[in-house]
């Protein structure tokens, strides 16, 4: 089977890869670009561990084909920190101990960042609904929600 050539942009960098049309964007990120931040929890759109943004839109990278990334702007968890400087969301997740095993964390970070870009002042209910597609089996969610709400408050003060 012939492989397809894909040119796309990931975290601001132009990248290229060859993929089988069956391979998902998640497979391509992890296996071809060595960006292993996005995780495969379920592979069927249920858990959100594979969350990335495509042209600014939050999606599950397990529900998108690698070939569909052609010409798109992809953002993954690897692009959230500025070099060694953590993003406020990452900082707060640590402060609140909002992670244990960490499998869900990259997806939560990408999803929460996308929420705050759309809505800098979300209510707790809005935050919980926005993150309803990001499952966490460890924390019980409360610390995650508090970390996101507190980051939102801090970013509002800073701006």
């Amino acid at each position: 089977m012939s492989k397809l050539h894909v040119s796309t942009t990931v975290n601001g960098d132009a990248v290229e890869y060859l993929c089988d049309p069956r391979e998902t964007l998640l497979d391509c990120l992890r296996d071809k670009l060595n960006l292993t931040g996005a995780k495969e929890g379920c592979g069927t759109g249920d858990c959100g561990a594979c969350s990335v943004t495509v042209d600014g839109r939050l999606v599950c990278s397990c529900l998108m084909l690698g070939v569909e990334a052609e010409g798109k702007q992809i953002e993954t968890v690897e692009g959230i920190a500025d070099g060694d400087v953590l993003h406020p969301l990452q900082q707060k997740m640590i402060e609140y101990a909002a992670l244990q095993c960490g499998i869900c964390t990259p997806g939560i970070l990408v999803a929460a960042k996308s929420l705050l870009e759309k809505n800098p002042n979300p209510t707790e209910e809005e935050t919980r609904y926005w993150l309803a597609g990001n499952l966490c089996r460890c924390t019980g969610y409360d610390k995650i929600i508090r970390a996101v709400m507190d980051t939102a408050a801090e970013l509002r003060e800073a701006s």
């Binding site: 759109g45 969350s51 495509v54 599950c60 529900l63 926005w130």
Partner: peptide, 9 residues
Amino acid sequence: IGSTQVQGR
């Protein structure tokens, strides 16, 4: 239908 992520598609 689905989550925020699913709504994006």
